[in-house]
Amino acid sequence: MFGAHSWSPSASHSALWVVLSAFWVSSANGLESQTPDLGELLKVQAQVQSQLSHVSRALVSVESDDGAASGVIVSPDGLVMTAEHVTNQPGRKLKLRLADGRQVTAKALGLDRTTDAAMMRIEGDKKNWPHVEPCRDLREARAGTWCFALGHPGGYDAKRGAVLRVGKVIKQMANGLQTDCILMGGDSGGPLFNLEGEVIGIHSQIWAGRDQNVHVSVAPFLRAWDALSKSSVVRSWGSGVGGWVGLMTRRSKQGELEILEVAPDSPAEKAGIKKGEIILTVDEEKVSDQPQFSEAISSRPSGSVVALQVRGKSGERRVTLKLSTRPEVEP
């Protein structure tokens, strides 16, 4: 309904949903046996309600010619966490509306195109902005953990105010969280909280299902906090605890896994993989977004051999490469 005028969590093609359905369903099944009692529900309610008035003061609505989105203030001097697909470009000026309706201007700082993380700073010298803390230890945000989302779906509406959704984490990924807090256009960039009122994620993508709401986790923010606050464009290479391939990827508008950059001297470069090419499968398993690819690589130990199906200018080909270890200093 608001598609033309609000930043939406980016949505997938319906065709891709079919491709990925097995992936989502398998991740969700593990939760069904959990049976909280009425007491647990009331405890969650009490915790959410006790945090609400404080954390909602840190919520902002982002307004510009492109549309409406959300963000959250995370420091007394006005640092704001949001999504890369909201700010787009370091240095860009954006209008923010605070919880009390006041308008201020913010400048887009650094961003990470692979994970959708981005920062802004409210302009001016004020040092006492209402703010929340990012969660420093994401290990607690595992599947089944209660959480809540705030945002301005459809854009700022003074009569309605911020919109709350309470749900659970369905899956934690390398740089993201999947929850059943239902999101839509205008929520992009808004905060996902744990019950302590700390930010654990930023609203990023939706798929067709009501349980398919994806948030960038605070992990990529914390990893690159200084770089993001200094307006740098951060590069998150396709790597993990295990193997390293040296590819920076993102999901293209067509819903495919596009290579944004190839690290020099990486296994990927040695195997002849080029910027702009599309990765179709990893060891015959279809991949179409960055978290999936990242997981596929990081779950394999260095030294293991993987086969990628790659589509380039001259058609599809199969590339076999040996994963190396992540370099001490990233390229």
């Binding site: 069904e32 909280p36 059943d180 239902i182």
Partner: peptide
Amino acid sequence: MKCGLIVSIVSI
């Protein structure tokens, strides 16, 4: 109080 609410993938 135990009352057997099942939490599923789509909210509760």
